[in-house]
Design a protein around this nucleic acid. Structure first.
Lengths: 363, 363
DNA sequence: CTGTTAGCGCGTTCAG
DNA sequence: CTGAACGCGCTAACAG
């Protein structure tokens, strides 16, 4: 009682395989109405399912794509996956999920497997900046690639979907710098990551744009963990208190390069008895789910992660279909979400004016 | 310059396809050392990758399995996925990820696709209790299925990996009931979910075991959202205050059926100025990532989600290999993680004594 | 040690 | 409108 094949159906229906194939693919011509119905019924009764493997072997299309991400357990990536999976399955494609654990070798292994599985394309949230060779392997195999979230080399050389980190950081910093007599601390991530570089440059741009004196901004380096945000903030508070009335050490605003560090900062402030947002305002980056659960809820720069996943899938499908998208890379727009860790500022321009909507155009 | 096939390699090497196939599959006999090396080199130089599709067509094995979960964006499921993916890829298997959005129809569609893709097996975190027919479709196609996290019908009738919800709830409740003069509130989830039923029964068992009077326990129903936990707790506090010195309304412990509701409860308590854990102790369930970020960090019942994913994968692989595992279902053991929302109790028995280690035995 | 032959299940000609 | 024959890339069984 093995799985029935197309020939089994043909035999039972007293027709040829070709005829069955035609009803399978809903081809209007070639099969009479009654015959069609009869074949359909037999397929249902026998529990027939056409083999996508066999089909792919002849068509050269597997209708499946690979998605490689550094880490599934990290709460940011599932959003990318979710967006991609939805777009893909809506288009009749399936998703091979692979994780690289941030390791270039594992990433290469995943790519090898995906090629063997005959995927029609790959979405790659690359493990490192040296992934260039890996991508070339795919290209050599004639498999389209869309980069997602992380840049490899020059941004414009490959298809990709990224967040405009600079813009997001700029928005947040501008918002804080609009505070009267603002003294801003920027807690950056590890300098080697492109995200850190871009966000920092956004903060510096905001400083220039707002005309605030350069000594009003102070940049410290964290490592994207809650602990680092807490420690850095605690020691800043400490230093400020030790200095007594020395106002140069004072600060009344913190912008952290991710939400976890912002939450750490929040905790340090609370423990020191500093009122948020009255004495110090705080903004994070990412808009992780927990951002709205802190007290007060965290103002933060939201990444449209699901959308990014979906866009990358659409871009890839276009490539798979053989069309050349007009734009090689899509920059998605971050959005400043105002919550309780900042005070309302009526005068400030609405953040949308900065945003534009570059990601709503045609791909 | 299309993708080279096994015949291309054979031609270049001046041997037959069979010989190439033999080195491809590392078969020790059949090929001489030098020939083997030469063929290997040619494969490397041409960037040859064997087609898993074609291979699967003849072997009847695709070396890929499907994993269906209700929702990828929900932070609990990625842990399951992560565990499964790791175990699978370590065994040389790839993972098709599908989401059902909790919808039985979509789940059916996913199953259909997976059958067509020729997966060797399916791990199913079922969308509903009526998924029985779907599973039968798979069984009819000769595809092994392992249930994960959610039960369908009678627990013992199918292969599956589940958490011992009753045990987890019992541990938590016992811990709280050990408090002197404990008056416990249990915030349950929606009654229709098996998780709610099992956890409630665990709480009731703890009450009996501890010999505490039944009127010390009060059960209210939430819906697993943070808001519901907050509201219910707030109104309980309200009622208690309105009653003045009426001690029957007093409570000094809350056990919530998940972490989100516990966090909501925490917030209500803080807003009412109730000290945690001094006046009221709180325990949650799940141990989501944010549990350790609340203030104080949340004591909770941890689910070994990654492990559950990994075990389900191993179970499935065993099935795929044609071996009959000794046990049809694996019950994983929850673990009470003591953090800041409960006070230390030196007298209480270590939670491990209750735990056992049923999930460490042979599958 | 190596080559030959025959499928795996399906899509696609090209004749009928 | 329908059917027979071939090929997709690979493995398995059997020759040599």
């Amino acid at each position: 009682m093995a799985r029935p094949t197309i020939s089994d159906i043909a035999k039972q229906a007293g027709v040829s395989k070709a005829t069955v194939s035609r009803v399978l693919n809903n081809r209007p011509q070639g099969v009479g109405g009654p015959t069609r119905e009869r074949i359909r019924k037999i397929m249902d009764d026998t529990g027939f399912h056409p083999s996508a493997l066999a089909r792919g072997l002849t068509t050269g299309q597997s209708r499946s794509v690979g998605l490689i991400i550094p880490d599934i357990a990290n709460p940011f990536y599932p959003l990318l996956v979710s967006g991609a999976e939805r777009a893909l399955s809506a288009a009749g494609y399936s998703l091979f999920l692979c994780h690289s654990a941030g390791d270039v070798a594992k990433e290469g292994e995943a790519i090898r497997v995906l090629i063997e599985k005959g995927v029609d394309g790959v979405i790659l949230d690359s493990a490192g900046s040296q992934s260039d060779a890996q991508v070339r392997t795919l290209e050599k195999a004639g498999i389209p690639v869309v980069l997602l979230d992380r840049v490899i080399g020059k941004r414009s050389s490959r298809y990709g979907v990224f967040l405009d980190n600079q813009l997001g950081a700029r928005q947040a910093a501008l918002h804080l710098l609009a505070r009267e007599a603002c003294r801003l601390i920027y807690i950056n991530g590890p300098a080697r990551l492109s995200q850190s570089v871009e966000r920092r440059s956004g903060v510096e741009a905001a400083l220039r744009d707002s005309g605030v004196a350069a000594d009003r901004l102070r940049i410290v380096a964290g490592d994207f963990t809650l602990e680092s945000g807490r420690c850095l903030t605690a020691s800043l508070i400490e230093a400020q208190r030790a200095a007594g009335a020395d106002r140069r050490l004072a600060f009344n605003a913190i912008f952290a390069a991710n939400d976890l560090m912002a939450i750490g900062a929040l905790r340090a402030l609370r423990q020191a008895g500093v009122a948020v947002p009255e004495e110090v305002e705080v903004i994070g980056f990412d808009d992780i789910e927990f951002a709205r659960m802190t007290e007060p809820p965290l103002t933060t720069v939201a990444q449209p992660a699901q959308e990014m996943g979906a866009i990358s899938a659409e871009l890839l499908l276009r490539l798979v279909a053989g069309r050349r998208p007009r734009r090689k890379t899509v920059l998605t727009t971050p959005r400043l979400v105002l919550r309780g860790t900042t005070v309302a500022r009526s005068a400030s321009a609405p953040s949308r004016s900065l945003a534009g909507d570059r990601n709503h155009g045609k791909l």
